[in-house]
């Protein structure tokens, strides 16, 4: 399949990419291309200009400083999965990246591209929400940070401004005692999660964070379940009630048969049991 014709440019700095974004109404940034190109091939997107940002040095690299892991927007899923710094400081992010798509997809797709595409069935939104990550964004007015909780506005819509470029994702390092799980039920054909649950428990059980993707119109935090588990502690009996709370409060639509809430109940329960068993 051929995409519609477009003008191809390469940006070598973030400012250049930001400037190119205002040159037309339909300008798209191209990172790894594993979200944008499929859309363009189906002609669901037909940008006039495509700007390759893969060569921008500022978008590359992984570092840790003062308890915050900074992951460059161009970091490919395979590196997020295998990078020793991310594995040590934010293992939930690595575990999530490790089960995106398949080997070939992970070799090309990037963390920034996936997050900006904001597919409601993507894996990564669950992890960045559960980790309270911040999106570092550069635009005409300088650099600002957008909390993950405010970034995903609607399916395929983010809080990014028209001329803003996602530079990096900042992830607070997880506590050293944290146990975490990303559990997904992949759709058998697409590999996208029908449901994906990202959760971690740390600080002696006083920190419990959980986010769910795939099943709602955007990924969401299971705040009622988190609050209950923080109060009750995470154990075999509290997990059942937490899963029920997550299911009851999940913002799912078109669930006449109750199948989606049932999936939430079952997968939250399984993810928590796996976390407590120290499995991943």
């Amino acid at each position: 399949m051929l995409t519609a014709p477009f003008e191809f440019r390469r940006a070598s700095t973030v400012n250049e990419a930001s400037d190119l974004l205002q040159q037309g109404t339909e300008v798209k940034l191209l990172a790894g291309g594993h979200s944008l190109l499929p859309l363009m091939k189906l002609r669901l997107a037909a940008p006039e200009m495509v700007v390759d940002i893969s060569g921008i040095p500022e978008l590359h690299g992984v570092s840790v400083h003062d308890g915050v892991v900074t992951v460059g927007a161009m970091t490919r899923h395979v590196e997020v999965a295998q990078n020793p710094v991310i594995q040590a400081e934010a293992p939930l992010l690595s575990k999530t990246a490790a089960v995106i798509g398949d080997v070939q997809v992970r070799n090309r797709g990037t963390i920034g591209g996936s997050l900006c595409h904001a597919d409601s069935a993507a894996d990564l939104p669950a992890a960045v929400l559960a980790l309270d990550a911040q999106m570092v964004v550069s635009g005409p007015d300088g650099i600002r940070k957008i909390p993950a909780s405010e970034f995903f506005v609607a399916p395929f819509v983010t809080a990014l401004g028209a001329r803003e470029v996602l530079m990096a994702v900042e992830v607070p390092a997880m506590p050293s005692d944290a146990a975490s799980t990303y559990l997904k039920r992949p759709h058998p054909a697409s590999g996208y999660p029908v449901i994906g649950v990202a959760c971690w428990v740390g600080n002696g059980g006083t920190s419990v964070k959980m986010a769910i993707t795939g099943i709602g119109s955007t990924a969401f935090r299971a705040v009622e379940a988190e609050a209950y588990l923080t109060e009750q502690g995470v154990n075999a009996s509290s997990i059942g009630e937490a899963a029920r709370l997550a299911a009851v409060h999940a913002p799912v639509e078109d669930d006449v048969t109750g199948y989606k809430r049932q999936l939430v109940n079952v997968y939250v329960s399984r993810a928590l049991h796996q976390t407590m068993a120290g499995k991943d």
């Binding site: 291309g33 190109l37 499929p38 091939k41 398949d102 080997v103 070939q104 997809v105 070799n107």
Partner: peptide, 22 residues
Amino acid sequence: TSQCGACTVLLDGEAVKSCTVL
């Protein structure tokens, strides 16, 4: 559509689906 892998080639040594790379 980046699913089947029949188009897999090595790009700088890494397996990629060449139907999803310009």
